[in-house]
Computed example of a mutant assay.
Amino acid sequence: MIVVYGIAAQLNPHKARLSEVIHGCMMEVLGLPEGKRAHRFVPLAADDFYYPSDRSPAYTVIEINMMEGRQVETKKALIKALFQRIESELAITPTDIEITIKEQPAHCWGFRGITGDEAQLNYAVHV
Results as ranks from 00 to 15, higher is better:
Thr74Glu: 03
His107Gln: 14
Ala124Glu: 13
Val72Pro: 06
Val61Ala: 12
Tyr123Trp: 14
Phe83Val: 06
Met66Pro: 02
Cys25Asp: 05
Val29Arg: 12
Phe41Arg: 11
Glu103Trp: 09
Pro33Val: 15
Pro57Glu: 08
Arg40Tyr: 13
Tyr50Glu: 07
Arg55Pro: 09
Ser56Phe: 08
Gly110Lys: 05
Arg37Cys: 08
Met67Lys: 03
Ser53Glu: 15
Ala38Ile: 11
His107Asn: 13
Thr74Tyr: 03
Asp47Ala: 05
Arg37Gly: 04
Thr93Arg: 04
Ile79Ala: 11
Glu87Leu: 08
Lys75His: 08
Ile97Ser: 06
Tyr51Thr: 01
Val42Arg: 08
Gly116Glu: 11
Ala46Gly: 07
Arg85Ser: 14
Pro105Phe: 04
Cys108Tyr: 13
Phe41Lys: 11
Glu68His: 06
Pro94Gln: 02
Arg55Gln: 08
Ile114Leu: 11
Ala106Ile: 10
Val61Cys: 09
Gln71Tyr: 11
Ala46Cys: 09
Pro52His: 08
Ala119Asp: 13
Ala124Lys: 14
Tyr51Trp: 05
Gly35Met: 03
Lys80Trp: 00
Thr100His: 12
Lys80Ile: 00
Leu90Phe: 02
Cys25Ala: 12
Gly110Trp: 03
Phe83Met: 13
Leu121Lys: 13
Arg55His: 14
Cys108Gln: 15
Glu28Tyr: 12
Ser53Gln: 09
Glu98Asp: 15
Gln71Val: 05
Gly35Tyr: 06
Glu73Asn: 10
Glu68Tyr: 09
Ser56Cys: 07
Ala77Glu: 05
Tyr59Lys: 10
Val125Asp: 02
Met26Glu: 01
Gly110Cys: 05
Ala106Leu: 14
Tyr59Leu: 06
Leu78Ser: 01
Thr93Ser: 15
Leu82Met: 09
Val21Pro: 00
Glu118Ser: 14
Asp96Ala: 07
Cys25Trp: 00
Thr93Asn: 07
Gly69Thr: 09
Glu34His: 08
Ala58Lys: 12
Asp47Lys: 10
Leu44Thr: 02
Glu73Ser: 14
Glu34Lys: 11
Arg40Trp: 10
Leu32His: 12
Gly69Arg: 08
Thr74Phe: 04
Ala106Met: 10
Ile79Val: 15
Val29Gln: 02
Arg85Tyr: 05
Ser53Leu: 11
Val42His: 09
Glu68Ile: 03
Tyr50Trp: 09
Gly110Met: 14
Gly24Phe: 04
Gln104Ile: 07
Gly31Ser: 04
Glu103Lys: 00
Ile86Val: 15
Gly69Phe: 05
Val21Met: 04
Val21Trp: 00
Ile97Gln: 00
Gly35Thr: 03
Arg112Met: 10
Thr93Ile: 08
Lys76Cys: 02
Ala81Pro: 00
